[in-house]
């Protein structure tokens, strides 16, 4: 074994050097620069001096920014929750669909991934506009037009639409892994379908459900395009603020600090999920 490893070490490095190099150059280095910037200040239009100041982080304590962070978290959480409500039955239906239909249904779920986000967002705008499809149809039966676009409703709807596949796919893979005979045993012992889902499916698929929630929550938290295009004046989420600071405001240090706070929030969510999963595993192991 050891001999093998020594002999293949050369080829190991050849295989891993390019991706490692790529990651370092295009991910770690820029990240480090941004991190350093977050402790700096603008000295001219194009130059930033890294002074080690914490003033950028102190500025985030401003209620304006705090409220935007809170709103982003609330929107992301609401989006994740709605995705779960919509996605769980969908994932369940795909799991129990006949094998042939399964592949097609999964394809349908993934199809939006292959369409540009911008295109999809504009399509959604066409649907929700005052003269859009929904309002036209509602008009026929004498309702509306309802204000469906450029408000918080549109943002959450758009986020659910964009992020749904992120939840359905992990949910599906968690549900599909379940041993069918356990579900049949539950039915056989007298439980109905709802009871079986509650007592058997959800507890056993919980790790998969949790990681699916996380995978949905993180991109939803950092959404930029959706709130920007579908939202109203009061719908901006944190990513829009970050963008404004980097571009229009040309305040790279403050934008960097905001970015890192967002990243810490993400880490926090991941840590919480890991902790819950570990606790569950431990609880399952003992007693």
């Amino acid at each position: 074994m050891e001999q093998d490893w020594k002999q293949s070490r050369g080829s190991f490095f050849t295989a891993f050097a390019p991706p490692a190099f790529w990651l370092t150059l295009f991910f770690l280095v820029p990240l480090a620069i941004i991190w350093a910037y977050s402790f700096g200040k603008n000295i001219s239009m194009t130059e930033v001096a890294v002074t080690g100041t914490l003033s950028n982080y102190a500025r985030i304590a401003d209620p304006v920014y705090i409220s935007i962070f809170v709103k982003s978290i609330v929107y992301a959480a609401l989006t994740t929750f709605l995705c779960l409500i919509v996605g769980f039955p969908v994932a369940l239906a795909i799991t129990f669909a006949p094998d042939k239909a399964k592949a097609w249904l999964l394809l349908l779920i993934m199809l939006p991934f292959w369409t540009n986000l911008l295109v999809r967002t504009y399509a959604l705008m066409a649907v929700l506009r005052t003269e859009g499809y929904v309002n036209t149809v509602l008009g026929w039966i004498g309702i509306g037009p309802l204000p469906l676009l450029h408000n918080n409703f549109a943002v959450v709807l758009g986020l659910v639409y964009v992020n749904l596949p992120f939840l359905v796919l992990p949910l599906y893979s968690a549900l599909d892994r379940l041993d069918r005979s356990l579900l049949e045993a539950s039915l056989d012992l007298g439980a109905g379908h709802i009871r079986t889902i509650r007592e058997i499916v959800i507890p056993l698929a919980l790790p998969g459900i949790l990681s699916g929630l996380l995978i949905t929550f993180i991109p939803a938290l950092g959404s930029y395009l959706t709130p920007d295009l579908l939202g109203g004046p009061d719908s901006q989420m944190i990513a829009s603020v970050i963008e404004r600071n980097f571009k229009r405001a040309n305040d790279w240090p403050f934008g960097s600090a905001l970015s890192f706070i967002l990243m810490y929030l993400t880490f926090f969510a991941i840590a919480a999920q890991t902790l819950v999963a570990a606790r569950r595993r431990k609880a399952g192991g003992e007693a």
Binding site: S181, D188, L189
Partner: peptide, 10 residues
């Protein structure tokens, strides 16, 4: 009631 081939113990 059934005892499954794979037992199917929860």
């Amino acid at each position: 009631n059934m005892v499954f081939q794979s037992y199917a113990v929860f």
